[in-house]
Amino acid sequence: MREHHVKSIIEDVCMHSSLGDLVAEPERTSGGLLHKMYEVETTTGKYAIKLLNPQIMQRPQALINYIQSEKIARFLSAEIPAVNAIDVNGEILQKVDSQYYLMFNWVEGTTLTPTEITNSHCEKIGGILAAIHEAKVSELDVHLEKNVELPEINWDEYLRKGEEQEAEWVPVLQENRDQLYEWNSRAAAAENVISLREVISHRDLDPKNVLWHKDSPALIDWESAGLINPIHDLLDTAIYWSENDDGDLEKGRFLSFLEGYEKVGGVIKADWRRTADYRMYGTLAWLEYNMKRSLWMECTDREEQELRTKEVTAALSTLKKYAQIIPELLIWLDNDR
Rank of each mutant, 00 (worst) to 15 (best):
S185N: 13
N209P: 03
L76A: 04
Q324M: 02
N154I: 02
E27H: 04
D271G: 06
N65Q: 15
S17F: 01
E149C: 03
N84F: 15
A24W: 04
Y289E: 13
W332T: 05
D221L: 03
R274E: 15
V137C: 13
E304T: 08
K124Y: 11
M291D: 14
E262P: 00
I153S: 05
E27Q: 14
H35N: 15
I228W: 05
I80C: 10
C122S: 14
V199C: 09
I268Q: 06
G252E: 15
S294P: 03
S242F: 02
I117H: 10
E145R: 14
D141R: 13
Q179W: 13
L196R: 15
R274M: 10
D221R: 07
V170Q: 14
P54L: 10
E175A: 07
K124W: 01
A188L: 13
L234I: 09
P26A: 09
D21G: 00
A73H: 03
I326C: 01
E145L: 09
D21I: 00
I268G: 06
L33T: 11
L287A: 03
V199R: 15
N244S: 10
H232R: 12
T44K: 15
G126V: 02
I200D: 04
K7P: 00
D233L: 04
P207A: 09
R273F: 04
E328W: 11
R308L: 01
Y278S: 01
E157D: 12
A73C: 04
S8I: 02
E11F: 00
A82H: 05
E11M: 08
E311W: 10
S216V: 11
D233F: 05
A190P: 04
D156K: 11
L34N: 10
E303A: 07
N229Y: 11
K208P: 00
N176L: 06
H5Y: 11
S317T: 12
I72F: 10
L205P: 06
V170Y: 15
N244A: 11
P81C: 00
L144C: 10
A276V: 02
P114S: 05
K321L: 08
